[in-house]
């Protein structure tokens, strides 16, 4: 006998009894609570169970919704989660490859290979975890929401933490003293990851996206931008790295958060 059968017997109006019930109760502490004091709790819970409700003409509305799911975005967001996640990750990988093949940082040969790939790995892992969470949608288990807030914070902090160690791998000491042009890096990184955000929007299944998911999406775009700038920019100046690279995720997260609030107020 299972706990569910005990519950069903209570709800059906019976007081569960017999050898099977006794055997179950000997090994099930929480069902035992239902039977204490003349089965008071089991009876109270059973009597609070409501009867099923008839949905009336609701099916017509649902059917209308389903029939209106046509077009490019409807097809894209109906793709399996693993496909949507692979496309988003593939875009980030494509950005990295593009930089490494065509716009590689000038000091690539002098930069510590171990540190370079450790930073790439850290960004890559963050992207895998973040994209997985972002593409799960409304069928993700309930406990995920609390974890999402932590993930968003981690995704926002990771680029800044990574920039603290990047100067250690630089093989050219003058790079640490060169302020360079952080605004150019910021604009380059922020612009190149816009298609990532566009894809994330096209793949989004929820009509109302929770703010944490939007912040995570912005932070993820920032991680992707830092990944490509890591392969592109030779600066080892901490101010440049924090302002021109690490701040991109914060900017996108704030932008999406503000836009979301504006849409909620207007709609």
């Amino acid at each position: 006998m299972e706990c569910a059968e005990i519950r069903n017997l209570f709800v059906a109006g019976s007081l569960p009894s017999g050898p099977d019930v006794d055997a179950h109760l000997r090994g099930c502490a929480h069902c035992g609570e239902l039977f204490a004091h003349d089965a008071e709790l089991g009876r109270r819970l059973a009597q609070a169970v409501d009867a099923d409700l008839e949905p009336g003409d609701l099916f017509a509305l649902v059917e209308r919704d389903v029939k209106s799911e046509v077009g490019l975005r409807a097809r894209l967001r109906a793709l399996p989660t693993r496909v949507r996640a692979a496309v988003l990750l593939g875009f980030a990988v494509a950005l990295l490859l593009f930089q490494l093949l065509f716009r590689r940082r000038p000091d690539f040969a002098d930069f510590s290979p171990a540190l370079f790939w450790i930073v790439v790995l850290a960004f890559g892992l963050a992207l895998v975890v973040g994209v997985r969470r972002l593409t799960r949608g409304a069928n993700a288990p309930l406990g995920v929401e609390a974890q999402s807030r932590w993930l968003a914070v981690c995704l926002l902090l990771l680029p800044a933490l990574a920039q603290l160690v990047v100067p250690l791998g630089s093989g050219t000491p003058e790079a640490a003293a060169t302020w360079g042009n952080p605004a150019a890096c910021f604009a380059y990184g922020a612009a190149l990851v816009m298609p990532f955000l566009l894809l994330a929007w096209l793949f989004e299944r929820r009509d109302t996206v929770p703010p944490t998911a939007l912040v995570s999406a912005g932070a993820l775009a920032g991680v992707a931008a830092n990944l490509l700038l890591h392969a592109h920019c030779p600066s080892a100046h901490l101010g440049h790295l924090l302002l021109g690279h690490a701040s991109i995720g914060v900017m996108w997260a704030v932008t999406l958060g503000v836009l979301s609030r504006s849409f909620q107020r207007s709609g």
């Binding site: 389903v66 799911e69 409807a74 949608g137 409304a138 069928n139 009509d207």
Partner: peptide, 18 residues
């Protein structure tokens, strides 16, 4: 309640491949 049930079935439709 009807509205949320309606949304549930729409989400089920969108996520059916999963």
């Amino acid at each position: 309640a009807n509205d949320l049930v309606q949304q549930t079935f729409l989400q089920l439709h969108r996520a059916r491949a999963d």
